[in-house]
């Protein structure tokens, strides 16, 4: 039990570190790709154990977002998106529930749920996160084109990076 929690915390530190040190610097200044920003920290909220109570997950997400915001110099923007996606997570899970239901002990085990389910879960979750993030960042739907473009392009890159992260870290819960 204890090692599980330690693993979770280490994973959290790793994603946040990757986000603020590496992903923040990735800036593809090439035409349409300039809209792309890599998001990796939402993956922790995404595959956090379903045993974590929802209010606790929302609170943790708030602090993760706030921490990332410290490095992005945008107090509240990442936090708002994280809180939103943490809140929306259970709804997304309900929406994407397979016919056989979730494995209560290992809901995010790649071997059980299959790669396609995982990609769609990743996509929907990130879509919610990114759309909320870019809306809050622009803060006005006057910039609708920029919001949509940023969301779609960042989504493609981020899902890819997240899948790589999950395959490498291979969470056991």
């Amino acid at each position: 039990m204890g090692t599980k929690w330690i693993g979770l915390i280490i994973r959290l530190l790793i994603v946040v570190f990757l986000q603020v040190v590496i992903c923040k610097r990735i800036n593809l200044d090439y035409g349409i790709l300039s809209f792309a920003h890599i998001f990796i920290y939402p993956v922790w909220i995404m595959i956090a154990p379903t045993k974590i109570p929802r209010p606790l997950l929302i609170t943790i997400a708030f602090f993760i977002g706030l921490f990332v915001d410290m490095f992005y110099d945008s107090p509240g923007v990442h936090a708002a998106a994280s809180v939103f996606s943490a809140y929306a997570r259970s709804m997304i899970l309900r929406f994407l529930e397979p016919d056989i239901g979730y494995d209560t002990d290992h809901p995010f085990n790649l071997n059980k749920v299959g790669i396609l389910w995982f990609i769609s879960y990743c996509g929907v979750f990130l879509l919610a996160h990114l759309f909320f993030y870019y809306s809050v960042e622009a803060f006005s739907f006057v910039f609708f084109y920029e919001i949509i473009m940023s969301t779609i392009i960042s989504l493609l890159f981020s899902v890819f990076i997240m899948l790589i992260f999950i395959l490498l870290s291979n969470p056991k819960y």
Partner: peptide, 25 residues
Amino acid sequence: YGSTLLFLFLELVCFFLIINFNKSQ
């Protein structure tokens, strides 16, 4: 409705931070 209330509360906090500490927003 605890999580919903918490969600709304934290979003309010976020928006407070955004409006007060982000120039363009």
